[in-house]
Simulated assay, not measured.
Amino acid sequence: MFDLPDTVYTIQHLAFEDLGAWEDVLYEQGLRVRYFEAGVENLEKAFAHEGLVIILGGPIGVYETTDYPFLQKEIDLLKVRLEKKLPTIGICLGAQLIAHALGAKVYAGHAKEIGWSTLSLANAAHHPLVALADTPVLHWHGDTFDLPAQAELLASSDLYPNQAFRVGPHILALQFHAEVAADSLEKWLIGHTCELRQAQIDIPTLRAAHQQYAPQLQQVSATVLGQFLAGLKSQS
């Protein structure tokens, strides 16, 4: 199982959506980071990795396998990984991929959720997201998912009931972006400008909210990731 120190394999669907503030947290834990580019690189090595794998976000949908055939291969590899209960975190698209691989439906939501707001945390024992209570997080998605049958719900938002879930101590899915760094939103604003315009999101307002909330989230989310890593170590 997962044994520190190790290398964290990170699957990236979009160049500017990286580990953000979490990269420093991993380095502080004595871990290295290896990125894999989905759609470009062979992901078999990444999904077979016995250490932690983090699957990042992206603007495509889990169900768009005809347009993006690599997604089906990614889903198939992820199913095997989850069956083996190997340590995995999914963020945004990554969370949707986990939900789909576990047999849940992923689909277009009724509204874009882009912006900062707090979560409603579920009543769960040893809640891995307890540090996020009352801390606004960044939401940036249009798709949503049903809760997998074997999953435990961890968080909801005003717009969507399924914002985070876990399967045992090894699998954590976050619809929101806990990893975003305080100093890196501008590349998101540039890269996602078409989506922001279509969703009629006011960019200066979004930027101002990021400047207000991201420094606190960066500190708090470091605790969330650190506790997840500690839980993996205790299970190894």
Rank of each mutant, 00 (worst) to 15 (best):
V167H: 05
Q212A: 15
E195N: 10
A155E: 01
V167A: 12
Q211D: 11
H192N: 04
S156G: 07
L172E: 08
Q200L: 11
V224L: 07
S184W: 02
E186L: 10
R197N: 03
L189Q: 09
E179R: 01
C194T: 12
A208F: 00
Q163F: 13
V220P: 08
R197L: 03
R207D: 06
A208Y: 01
D158M: 14
F176G: 03
A155L: 12
L153S: 05
L159R: 08
Q218D: 04
L174H: 02
R207S: 05
L172R: 05
F228D: 04
A173D: 02
L154A: 10
Q227E: 15
D158F: 08
A214K: 01
A181L: 03
L196Q: 13
Q227P: 00
V167Y: 02
S157G: 09
A164I: 11
A222W: 06
T193A: 10
H210K: 04
A164D: 08
A182Q: 03
D202P: 01
W188V: 04
A181M: 04
S157P: 01
A182I: 07
E195H: 08
Q200N: 14
S184K: 03
V167D: 02
A173Y: 07
F165Q: 06
Q211W: 03
D202V: 11
K187H: 05
L159T: 02
P215F: 12
A149R: 01
D158I: 15
L229I: 13
N162D: 04
F176Q: 02
L225I: 13
Q175F: 14
A181K: 01
D183V: 09
P161I: 08
F228Q: 09
A151G: 13
I201L: 03
Q163V: 15
P169S: 14
F176C: 05
G191T: 08
G168Y: 05
I171V: 15
Q219M: 11
E152S: 14
R197E: 15
Q211C: 14
P148S: 10
Q212W: 01
Q211A: 15
W188D: 00
A214L: 07
A181Y: 00
A155M: 08
A178H: 05
A149W: 00
